[in-house]
Amino acid sequence: MSRPRLFLSPPHMSGIEQTYIAEAFESNYIAPLGPMVERFEQSIREFTSTPNALALSSATAALHLALRVLGVGAGDVVLASSFTFIGSIAPILYQNAIPVFIDSDTKSWNLDPELLEKAIAASPKKPKALILTHLYGQCADLAKIIAICTLHNIAVIEDAAESLGAAYAASQSGTFGIFGVYSFNGNKILTTSGGGMLVSPNKELIDKARFYSTQARDDAPHYEHTEFGYNYRLSNILAAIGVAQMEVLQERVAARQQIFTWYREMLSDIGEITFMPELPEACGNRWLTTLTFEKSDPTEIRLALEAENIESRPLWKPMHLQPLFKETLSIQNGTSQNLFEKGLCLPSGTQMTRDDAEQVCEILKKALR
């Protein structure tokens, strides 16, 4: 009999979720909005020390609202990390704006501050915003990037979809820009099945995003609309799951960090492996343990793991290499392409045991031999 499948990053329920879901059912707040949504938003505000939070249907929806509220529209330029997931970039297209992609540095695998300066200079017009991804739970070089964007009056939207619980200079990721975005998709460090959160120090901007997220309904007893909006709010039932998940966030972060430590120890004798680095000022949540192979083919490693019912995954294919963006301006240095070609994500779910990690490493080493 084959072993149970070891997934890359499966959901991990705390056991409290059913209690809060039952409360939501008893209150009969089954449709979007309700007390659990408010509690979920409050838990994010308290954890991140951010005064304003808005629970939404996805992180992509949150990014879309951020751009809309900032006035990004047709023909505007939005800078963005190239080494990321398409959900970080799609909202730029929703607004008919123009993305300009920026490659990674080797110190963090995130957006390169030096290339950011070059992208601003090369942009066809003054950029309105930057969508900055914190990749795989690791923070980008926020001090340099925020300073550059402040100098050029470019709004920073932190795509912290993968980095809830990560910190930079003792402050939570997602709290440095005018907006921050978190994801609660099924494979994230916390999940509500599907969901996202938009945070900001600016109440007026969050209030406007809230207005757009509920079909832009004006204040009237009937349905009155002077602007168009979206159906982007999170349901009260899913928010109940989020309330429970937030109660174990620090445990989940500690578990992911422990899994990374196991992998690093067990693979320390393989010279060609390099793990995703962490900036000295930062403490990542290690959402996924990721690494590169200097000589070996990561596809062979992935297939060897798959043959043993273990899920792994290539690193993100950079946006500037996607067919969709073949005509899009990108400022490159080859870093993200090299990472994509040499990299792999290892199973990192918080229910993994040390024995699970040992099995992964054993198969990986055998494939390398």
Rank of each mutant, 00 (worst) to 15 (best):
Q42G: 05
S43M: 10
I44N: 05
I44A: 05
R45D: 08
R45Y: 05
E46H: 12
E46M: 10
T48R: 09
S49Q: 15
T50Y: 03
N52C: 13
A53F: 10
L54Q: 12
L54C: 11
L54N: 11
A55I: 04
S57V: 10
S58T: 06
A59I: 06
T60W: 00
A62W: 02
L63D: 11
L65C: 10
A66P: 00
A66K: 01
L67P: 06
R68L: 09
R68V: 11
V69K: 02
V69N: 01
L70S: 12
V72N: 01
V72Q: 00
A74L: 06
A74G: 11
G75I: 15
G75Y: 12
D76G: 03
V77S: 00
V78E: 02
L79R: 08
A80C: 13
S81E: 03
S81H: 02
S82C: 09
S82G: 15
S82D: 04
F83C: 14
T84F: 04
F85P: 01
G87I: 02
S88K: 07
A90K: 00
I92G: 07
L93R: 10
A97W: 11
A97F: 10
I98N: 03
I98C: 02
I98E: 04
I98H: 04
P99H: 13
V100A: 00
I102M: 15
S104L: 01
S104Y: 06
D105Y: 04
D105P: 07
K107A: 13
N110T: 14
N110C: 15
P113L: 07
E114G: 03
L116R: 04
A119Q: 11
A119E: 06
A119D: 06
A119T: 04
I120H: 03
I120T: 05
A121R: 09
A121T: 00
A122V: 01
A122D: 07
P124I: 03
K125G: 02
K126G: 00
P127T: 00
P127H: 00
L130D: 00
